[in-house]
Every structure is written in structure tokens, then in C-alpha cells.
Simulated assay, not measured.
Amino acid sequence: MIDQQHINYQRIEKAIAYIKDNFKDQPSLDEIAAAVHLSPFHFQRLFTEWAGVSPKKFIQYISLEYAKGLLKNRGSTLLDTAYETGLSGTSRLHDLFVNIEGMTPGEFKNGGEGLVINYCFAESPFGKMIVASTSKGVCHMFFEDDEAQALVDLEKRFPNACYHQITDRFQQDALFIFQNDWKQLNQIKLHLAGTPFQVKVWESLLKIPLGGLNTYGDIAKSIEQPKAARAVGTAIGSNPVAFLIPCHRVIQGSGNIGGYMWGKTRKSAIIGWEAAQREQ
């Protein structure tokens, strides 16, 4: 089941890459299906199961016009409550609160010395992930298909910590975000190593609701440093918790998707998937 889910995402990822490269030509169902070596019928069913909408509708969600339209109406999509982001599933919106606690200067400086970090590997709609947590909350959540490489990346961030491959409640709560019934979610707690500026930027990302997009300049203004868009971009690029801290919801002022630590195709996939979930 898990392996099949991963295979299906790889097919969808390939389809999205094709759509991204050709969306201005509005490719037909047959053309997209042929690009991923599936029959139109099979591809339509697989894509709709994954995204909740047809491939044709999905093209609209990841087009530049959709992105620019969201930016023009961004005032109506932002939530005023700090740390709050709207999640919509098969039912109405549910509120999810994510609480960030920064690590102490000593923990940050000493590479996690004295920290005990639990970690596990899990599947998501967007590929395999590694999720790690301390006694205070999730400290690391990366997309990575190669488990050995995922562990190397985690250990680079906290070279002096003690590691255990154990799934704990913090990790489970974080992974519930990918489920359809978000009523199971408790408050998600994060324990992050970052400068005060980075933490402030990451907190601001949590105000962007599901299906909404902001620019780097918007984030700079939201933290009352309107001239710091470049520094904001660097902080966003250092986000240690994929998806939960939604750096994928930040795009360029031109409406272009922009960069993403875990790949532009995955970023487009997440943006489109969230837009589809919002309309269900």
C-alpha cells in the first residue's frame, strides 16, 4: 500500500512537471496521460483520486494566472490570528494551531549537544519524509526518498545530538496533517533551531491559509521590515520543517512559482493540491 502510494505520487509528479512545462498550451487529457505512459481513463481516475479534482481543473490551479489572482486578492485570504492556518478537507474548515518554541542559544550553538532526538520515516502525498522531534516538539521534517541521505541531513543539523529511530506523539500529530479527518489533530508543537529573525519569518508563514499565496515582499511587510525581502527569502530557504511551516505558499512578486528546497515540481504539486482541497 505504501509502496503503491509512492509510485502513484511519482506518476503524478511527472504529470505535474509536464503540465508546468506546457500549461500555456492547455494540454489535453490524452496528451498528459501519454506523457506519463498511462491510458487516459486510468490517468484521469488516478489524478482525481490524488488531487480531488480533474487534471484540467488542476492546470488552472498551478497556472500563473491563478497565482496572480490570489496575490491580487490576498487581503481576503490572510488570517489575522497568529499561528493559525485554515485546513479544509471533505468537511468544513478546521483550525490548526502550530506552536513554535525556539531552541536555547546553547542548544543552537552546540549542535544539539544534550538533545535526544527521535526520528521516523513516513509516506506523504508528496513523497517520503523524515520527521524528527525532541522532548519539546518537531525539530525537523524533510522530503527525502533516500532514508540514508535523510538521516545524514538530519545529523548535519544536530551533529552532537543522541538519535533514536522511534515514532512519538509529536511526529504522529505532525503527520496527521496529511489525513482527511483533521479532527484528530492536537496542537502541533515545533522546537526549532534558528535566529530570532528566522523564527519570526517562520511564524509569519503560518498566517498564510491553505490555498493562499504571498510574496517575499508581503512577508517582509508582515514582520514590519519591508526592505528585508532578500533576508526573508534566505530565512524561508532555511525552513527546517517542510509543509507544516508552509514556505511553499511564498512565490515571486511576478507570480512565478519561484524556488523550493524540495524541488519546484513538488512545490507546484503542493500548491495545486491545497487549492483543490480548499474547494472540496
Rank of each mutant, 00 (worst) to 15 (best):
C162N: 09
K156M: 08
A174C: 12
Q60P: 00
Y163K: 08
G255N: 06
M1T: 01
G272R: 13
A193V: 06
A220I: 00
K221Y: 04
V199R: 11
M141T: 02
D168I: 09
Q187P: 11
N256D: 04
A35N: 09
R92G: 09
M129L: 14
D25L: 12
K57R: 10
I12G: 04
S204Y: 02
E224Q: 01
A15P: 04
F176Q: 12
A82V: 14
Y216R: 01
M261G: 10
E107G: 01
T77H: 09
T90I: 15
F97E: 08
F41W: 10
L154H: 07
L192D: 06
N214V: 15
Q60Y: 00
L71E: 03
I177C: 07
I7G: 00
F41Y: 07
I166K: 10
G69T: 09
I270K: 05
L213H: 02
I208S: 10
K24G: 00
L151I: 09
N256T: 04
Q10N: 04
A148P: 08
V116P: 01
Y9A: 03
K136G: 05
I251F: 02
K200I: 05
L115P: 10
F243M: 04
S63M: 04
K136N: 14
A231D: 03
Q172G: 04
Y61Q: 08
H42W: 06
Q277V: 06
Q44S: 15
L78N: 00
Q171C: 14
L190V: 14
E49I: 08
K128R: 14
